[in-house]
């Protein structure tokens, strides 16, 4: 894989390509806002930002239908937005309000919207892989051609559920995409120190399924790999493993003074390979985007985020006694 050349734009309608850019920009601006509000004390607990990795979530989700299902990780905002989640309810959840996706019971690490096939962010590393494999089994049993996608990190790829689920999905030919977001670190531990092989995708051979490495900052490369895997899954061919090499720009979490062991020059080099700037350039080259359109897009996104924050701030906190609600379903 060469990280210096970009995949040519696939033959996709301009609207679809612009929508990819809009979603990536929305993720970035959402998280910039979430980080500010976190540091201002309006958002609590822990916030993990996806900035720098937006091409993975958007590239994969652009190859999916609304009825397809995904599961996320502790770093989940990007997957939510890529799958079409509502910004108001996401922001309200971060703000801990009643109107949030989880009525204020989940926060950043637990946003879910089953209505759009987003089966939740998950606070346990590798915790979602088995759950979404069950969604893949459900899709197979439903027999309507649905697929399920597991997003997980390089760190999670060393945990048991990854191996158990790849084996069972391969054995049962489940319509699954296993998408490893290899950002080269698990918190402050370099993948090189914890992986016996450089490429997670190489493990696919052990399960007899396709495993590909793609440039995770190149949205068209991600999209095309996902598309091939989706076709294979929908036609009964079974699961695929896609490893997206990418990088997180910010520290592991937004906590003030959070340690970051990474070499600043490494971070700068990856910022030079901004997935959003790359897509923007490709759109311009194709004549699908000009300055005015980009400004409008930015303005619309910032407007939507202002509205989301206003919605969150205007929403009530849960009542203390609501802590007892929903332990069990009716």
């Amino acid at each position: 894989m060469s990280l210096s050349t970009q995949s040519p734009a696939p033959n996709l309608p301009p609207d679809k390509q612009r929508e990819m850019l809009r979603r990536m920009l929305t993720i970035r601006r959402f998280e910039e806002r979430a980080s500010d509000d976190y540091l201002a004390g309006k958002i609590y607990g822990v916030v993990h930002c996806y900035i720098g990795e937006e091409a993975v979530a958007v590239g994969v989700c652009s190859a999916l239908d609304r009825g397809d299902r995904i599961i996320s990780t502790h770093r989940g905002h990007g997957h939510c937005i890529a799958k079409g989640a509502d910004l108001n309810r996401m922001m309200a959840e971060l703000y801990g309000r009643q109107t949030g996706y989880c009525k204020g019971k989940g926060g950043s690490m637990h946003i879910a919207d089953f209505g759009i096939g987003m089966l939740g962010a998950n606070g346990i590393v590798a915790g979602g892989i088995a759950i979404v494999t069950g969604a893949g089994l459900a899709a197979k049993m439903e027999g309507k051609g649905g697929v399920a996608v597991s997003f997980f990190g390089d760190g999670a790829s060393n945990a048991g559920p990854f191996h158990e689920c790849l084996n069972i999905a391969a054995t049962w030919k489940l319509p699954m995409l296993y998408v490893c977001e290899n950002n080269m670190y698990a918190a402050n531990t370099a993948a090189a120190a914890t992986h016996a092989l450089g490429d997670v995708a190489a493990r696919a051979a052990g399960y007899g399924i396709p495993g590909v490495v793609v440039d995770g900052n190149d949205i068209f490369a991600v999209y095309q790999a996902a598309n091939r895997a989706v076709d294979r899954a929908r036609s009964g061919g079974g699961p695929s493993l896609i490893e997206c090499k990418t990088y997180r720009w910010r520290a592991h979490t937004e906590r003030r003074g959070m340690a970051d062991v990474r070499d600043p020059s490494e971070i700068e080099a990856w910022k030079g390979r901004d997935p959003i700037a790359q897509l923007e350039r490709q759109l311009r080259e194709q004549g699908y985007l000009d300055d005015a359109e980009l400004q409008t897009m930015e303005r619309d996104i910032l407007g939507a985020l202002e509205a989301a924050v206003a919605f969150a701030e205007a929403s009530p906190f849960p009542l203390p006694q609501q802590a007892a609600d929903d332990v069990f379903a009716a």
């Binding site: 599961i71 088995a130 759950i131 494999t133 069950g134 969604a135 559920p161 158990e164 689920c165 054995t171």
Partner: peptide
């Protein structure tokens, strides 16, 4: 009949249940 992967089965049941099945 499944592989001996209780962790996977236990979790897969959750996902299938969330998708409308009763595992």
């Amino acid at each position: 009949a499944t592989p001996i992967t209780e962790a996977a089965l236990t979790g897969m049941a959750i996902g299938a249940a969330g998708c409308g099945f009763r595992p």
